[in-house]
Nucleic acid binder design. Structure first.
Lengths: 141, 141
DNA sequence: ACCATTTAGTTACCAAGGGTAACCATTTGA
DNA sequence: TCAAATGGTTACCCTTGGTAACTAAATGGT
């Protein structure tokens, strides 16, 4: 499996570039999109939950959430623990999510166009496995 | 295939973090490693070739190559076209490459540990296909 | 053969994204 | 009950990368 990381990294910039081109018309960037995606798929979350999932520091998420709040895409809800800031998508946030989702799904189909169904699925399912292995690798240190 | 890009992006930071931790003991970062990898696998290259392969701008590669030259990892060779700067790994560069390669290969094995051989291969082979599709997507614009 | 255009690379400046350290407020738990 | 741990923010800085303007060299149409 020599070179897997390299192949992964080679894909990164072209992918981010296409994605940001697409997101520009909605005035968001991929880093904001990642938070929106997280809230859509995992529901209301605290900043620490988001930070640890993507393995970035807390201030990074503070900044992203501040921008998303200014844009009216997310809002804070109250929980028991007064230290926590629980964030969820607003109605407007959901609506923007759905519009962007269509565009991204279309892009994903174009990128997967000539790849057999079975291979797509395997490549799709392997990511969470590697993710878990990366997390475990971290714990060992 | 909805969410493929997202799954890809989610992996990025954890992977970069592990990789940089590993590379730190050799005093290089993943961005320098990518250039070394390119030279090892594609042979002596011009800066424009490297830049267009990874889809970054020329100044970015100028900077990386300057650092690698300071570190004695790459050197310039002369070609016919006097505008071009053709770069290759030095003996020292090859030696460092081989040491790092062992560590990264070991990391790659740990990350793929619990994934069946066949799935690994498919996930490995799918990257160049997506890469080509991304490049084609760019041309259409 | 000549000159406008293109190409390769560099420099200087700037922007995005993210990290570290220090801090406050709240909660946990010995 | 009070020290330690946790969630979040602020201020400052670093890394990476992009843009614009430039030089030098090569190309190509006339």
């Amino acid at each position: 499996m020599e070179g897997y990381l390299q192949r992964f990294l080679t894909l990164y910039r072209p992918m981010i570039t296409r994605l940001n081109e697409l997101l520009a018309s909605y005035d968001i960037t991929y880093s904001l999109w990642m938070v929106m995606y997280h809230l859509k798929h995992r529901g209301a979350s605290t900043l620490v939950e988001i930070a640890s999932h993507y393995e970035v520091e807390k201030p990074t998420i503070t900044r992203r959430v501040q921008k998303l709040m200014e844009l009216g895409i997310v809002e804070q809800i109250s929980g028991k623990d007064k230290r926590e800031k629980i964030i969820q998508l607003t109605d407007s946030g959901f609506s923007i999510y759905n519009k962007v989702r269509k565009d991204i799904t279309a892009l994903e189909f174009r990128l997967m166009d000539n790849i057999p169904e079975q291979e797509r699925n395997i490549a799709y399912e392997i990511f969470p496995k590697i993710y878990n292995n990366l997390k475990q690798e971290r714990e060992l240190q």
